[in-house]
Structures are given as C-alpha cells and as structure tokens.
Nucleic acid binder design. Structure first.
Length: 227
DNA sequence: GACCAGGCACATC
DNA sequence: GATGTGCATGGT
C-alpha cells in the first residue's frame, strides 16, 4: 500500500517539530512589521531584513502612517541592507497604498476580506508574487494559506514524491495535507512552513547539504541525493 | 572573488 | 511557455 503524497507531507511535520521545536512564526512583533518583512525578504538573507527593520524602528518609521510619510530617498536608505532597495521601496509604497487607500487598513487591525479576492488583489500589484502574497495573507492577516518557498521546492525534490514544480500545485498539495492529515489549524499552516525554512537553513542549503544529519534523512523520509 | 540568500517582472527565443 | 536577465546588498 503506497502512501499518498498528502500523507508523506504530513508525516514530515512531527519529525521536524520534534527536531526544531515549535517556531512561533512569523518573526515580527506587529502585523505591520510582518507585512513589511514579507516584502523585504525577497531574494535576500533574513539577517539583512533584520538590519532594515532595525533601521526603520530607529527612524520611528515602522508604522503605516510614518512609513507613508517618508520621502522616497529616505525609505530607500533605510531598507538598503536588503538589496534591490529602489525596487523594494517602490513595491512597498504601492503595497501600502493599496492596503491603506483601497482597503482602508489602519496598519494594525485585521481585515475582513475574502481570502481568495484578497490574494488576487495582492498578486495584481507589481512586485507581489505568490510567495510574498501568501506570506502576507498567512502570517500578516491570519489566513489559512500555505507559503511555498525555495526551501519547500528544494526539500520536495529530495523526497519520494512526484509533483509538478509549479507554485500552485505545490501549495494545493500542502494545503490538502494540512487539512486532511493534520489538524487544519492556522497554527499548522504557519508552523509547517516555518519548520521547512529551519530545515532548509540548517540542512538543505544549496551549498552545504548535510544529508546524514538531516532529521528527515534520519527518519528515512528523505533520500540521500547529491546536489 | 565567486556564490548564495525565505522573489519578481520583463524581454526574448 | 520555457528560459534568461536585471535588480543590489551582505555573509561565507
């Protein structure tokens, strides 16, 4: 009897959680910080995002109203450590304009908006792709959406699961796994992604694959594979 | 000095 | 529709 892909995905969770512990993600103190961090982390190391967040805090610009008041050059200089600072300043400005002007967000409250509609609107913004949109939805606004990232794809390629490499197929698979084989809670949506990032950072980096010590390899859930 | 990091948009074939 | 390239900084 062959295990379904959903069962295989779900089986990863207890192994990862036992190894890394519950992650309490997203690493951000406020909803606004999470939204900003989700955009700033695009193609850069989280340590660089932390520097930018620290800059914004020091400048007392880590709130919706304050950030929108910032001159463009000032915003660019504060987020500079995350790279692509001109693009990101532009993307951030457009995102905040959408949230505030179109949705009437005050920068703090949750939003009552249909998740599917909200997601399509975010994706229509320049610079908001599926991973950024889903990070904002899941961690920023508490929606049951699974975030697929580079680590998720890399991990999947090392598991005995045949699945297409496109974002939506993978997202749907993980969402079915969480809803059918785990408890389907928001906490599970958040923590499974967080666990995969931990796995990626410690054992699944491009340059330093350490399969022997990887908790999934030790639990015989992951096959050894040269990179 | 090359390569990588929790992407995305746009051009080109 | 797949594949390549620009965007830019900081750590290894």
């Amino acid at each position: 009897m062959k295990k379904s892909p959903e069962k295989r995905i779900a089986a990863l969770y207890p192994v990862l959680r036992d190894h890394f512990g519950f992650q309490h993600w997203w690493p951000g103190e406020t909803r606004f910080e999470i939204v900003v961090g989700a955009l700033l982390t695009q193609n850069c190391a989280w340590s660089n995002v932390e520097k930018a967040i620290a800059n914004l805090k020091a400048a007392e610009a880590l709130s919706l109203a304050a950030m929108r008041e910032l001159p463009r050059e000032r915003l660019e200089s504060l987020i500079r450590p995350t790279g692509y600072f001109r693009q990101k300043a532009d993307r951030l400005t457009r995102l905040l304009a959408f949230l505030a002007d179109d949705l009437g967000w005050n920068g703090v409250s949750p939003l009552k908006r249909d998740t599917g509609k909200f997601r399509r609107e975010l994706l229509a913004l320049s610079g908001i792709g599926p991973e950024t949109a889903d990070s904002i939805l899941c961690y920023g606004f508490g929606r049951k959406v699974f975030v697929v990232d580079a680590y998720t794809k890399r991990m999947l390629s090392r598991l005995p699961i045949a699945v297409a490499d496109d974002y939506e197929t993978i997202r749907a698979l993980f969402e079915r796994a969480i809803c059918r084989e785990l408890d389907g809670s928001l906490k599970a949506f958040k923590d499974l992604h967080a666990q995969i990032v931990m796995l990626g950072k410690h054992y699944c980096r491009k340059s330093t694959p350490r399969c022997e010590a990887c908790p999934l390899f030790r639990a015989r859930l992951c096959r050894r594979r040269r990179v």
